[in-house]
Design a protein around this nucleic acid. Structure first.
Length: 510
RNA sequence: GGCCCCAUCGUCUAGAGGCCAAGGACACCACCCUCUCAAGGUGGAGACACGGGUUCGAAUCCCGUUGGGGCUGCCA
């Protein structure tokens, strides 16, 4: 077993964030590129904020994007013994001290200080650890250097680092501690994560070295099952070589700020609901902070894997541009073979019980009115007009709704505001009653009645479209009329004429 | 405030000292195609933050300024 070992370590405190998805993708790409191992670790030490349903969400979103982990999910909540052992050893080795200061006390004491953060008040008070927070004793002198594959060497002077807390007064380990213990136990070779974690990297390194110094090794009863990480360590050189770091640029909103769960649309689940294809979404994510060589942007996953290099990752934050994502999704949609496009539409047009369907709700028509053959016939024309699958129902609803909603603005413009609309509708009704029922014949006779009315077909079709579909835009008209059927088309034109105040054609004719 | 990161069209980016009077993509505008809307085609507008160096030569290297961002929790 060789190759790098990387991990994606989300904490389940909400929907799956697009930034997390990008981090996960870059880890996954890196592992695949180098024949390594992609590990999923759930960082759920904060019992207050974690919920099991969010774990499910992470798992299903990752599966949707095709990033199945090779190992895991491991859960920090199941590894408490490892953290306790590390804490004990660190305490014995003198790297930790107990602290009973409250936040308010620290603030009072340090107000006006040049270097903020904890002032080391409890450092030499010799407090017992029971019931107290534990702080790591940061060296006074020197600096810790983080070797970063994307940023180079980043130097953090110890003088500017506070003695950080590694365990709560309840004994619960905190992020840096658990994170480092896990990375050691799981023999992580590359830590690839968001740039927001760069300032905590030197803390992790300090802890890592302290753990080495006090002889905490991986393996043993509490180590990771099946990871193969801690086995047979006897006599090897450094037991725990420090992992390489790679801090990825942030994903930001239009205000250039880190994407926020509150303000920004960041839930991957939401994009799935809207009808983005996983291939397209993954492709777009790969373009944020990196670009495949050769300038191509729409690239398949194999190409992504073959070309991915951490060293080429950008340094500057990237804006998550839904418009560009949408365009790319449209390209993926359009290149789908028709049968696959139709299949991809199913959750939005005819969801099956027991299968995934968008949480936003089902199609606007009653299921029994949906017809597979009709949908398959209109599908090619829908395929080149939508950029997301979620737009599909709105484009074909007039075919499956008894009485499609009438868009008042369209009506006002194309029918109410057109003095000749009534005449055109009557002419259409007359022609459609007897003509051959095919898209071609409908096209022809409508062209003829347009000519008779002295206007271009483009202008003549507008009132007919609004009368029949309720809107001024939609799939090509004559195919739509054909699929709706003669009786239904005549009924809707008749209804529109009555709305206009005209006599229904049946009455005039009869 | 302190520490750290960053800086090419509005956006995502190509660019690793001369091939750049800076290329592509999204968005935008115009035209073409056209039964609406799309899709597609053609064309257009649009950037190396600023100031110093280094060099025969800098978008590319160095320093500074400015601007933006991240972190600064007994969250992760």
């Amino acid at each position: 077993m060789s190759g790098p070992r990387v991990r994606f370590a989300p904490s389940p405190t909400g929907y799956f964030h697009v930034g997390s998805a990008r981090t996960s993708l870059f880890n996954w790409l890196f592992a695949r590129r180098h024949g390594g191992t992609f590990i999923l670790r759930i960082e759920d030490t904060d019992t207050e904020r974690n919920r099991e349903e969010w774990v499910e969400g992470i798992l299903s979103a990752m599966a949707w994007l095709g990033m199945d982990p090779d190992e895991g999910p491991y859960r920090q909540s199941e590894r408490a013994g490892r953290y306790a052992a590390a804490l004990d050893a660190l305490w014995e080795g003198g790297h930790l001290y107990a602290c009973e200061c409250t936040r308010a006390q620290v603030e009072d004491r340090t107000r006006g200080n040049q270097t903020p953060g904890y002032d080391g008040y409890c450092r030499d008070r010799g407090l017992g650890r029971e019931g107290r927070a534990l702080r790591f004793r940061v060296p006074d002198e020197g600096a810790t250097v983080v070797s970063d594959l994307v940023r180079g060497e980043v130097r953090f002077p110890h003088a500017a680092m506070e003695d950080f807390v590694v365990a709560k007064s309840s004994g619960q380990p905190l992020f840096v501690l658990a994170n480092v213990v896990d990375d050691r136990d799981m023999a992580i070779s590359h830590v690839i994560r968001g740039e927001d974690l760069l300032p905590s990297a030197p803390k992790g390194i300090l802890l890592w070295r302290a753990l080495d110094a006090v002889g905490v090794s991986a393996g043993g009863a509490g180590a990771v099952a099946g990871a193969g990480a801690g086995a047979d360590r006897a006599g090897g050189p450094p037991e725990h070589p420090l992992p390489a770091f790679a801090h990825l640029p942030m994903l930001v909103n239009e205000r250039r700020q880190k994407l926020s769960k509150r303000r920004d649309p960041v839930a991957v689940e939401m994009y799935r609901d809207q009808g983005f294809l996983p291939e397209a979404f993954r492709n777009y994510l790969a373009l944020l902070g990196w670009s495949p060589p050769g300038g191509a942007e729409k690239v398949d996953v194999g190409t992504l894997i073959g070309a991915f290099r951490l060293e080429e990752v950008h340094h500057a934050p990237a804006f998550f541009d839904v418009q560009k994502l949408t365009h790319l999704n449209g390209e993926y949609l359009r290149e789908l073979p028709l049968d696959r496009f139709v299949a991809a539409c199913r959750p939005w047009v005819a969801p099956r019980a027991g299968e995934w369907a968008p949480a936003s709700g089902g199609p606007p028509w009653p299921p029994e009115r949906f017809d597979d053959a009709t949908f398959a016939a209109i599908a090619p024309m829908v395929q080149e007009r939508v950029a997301t699958l979620g737009e599909v129902p709105g484009m074909v609803d007039f075919l499956f709704l008894e009485d499609p909603a009438l868009d008042e603005a369209s009506w006002a413009k194309a029918v109410g505001g057109d003095p000749e609309a009534g005449g055109i509708l009557q002419a259409a009704a007359a022609a459609y009653r007897t003509c051959e029922w095919s898209p071609e014949a409908l096209h022809r006779v409508t062209g003829e009645l347009a000519e008779a009315a002295g206007r271009r077909l483009a202008k003549a079709q507008a009132p007919i479209r609004v009368a029949v579909t309720g809107r001024s835009v939609g799939p090509p008209l004559f195919e739509s009329l054909f699929l709706l059927g003669r009786d239904e088309v005549l009924r809707r034109i008749g209804a529109a004429l009555r709305r206009l105040g005209h006599q229904a054609p049946e009455a005039t004719a009869g």
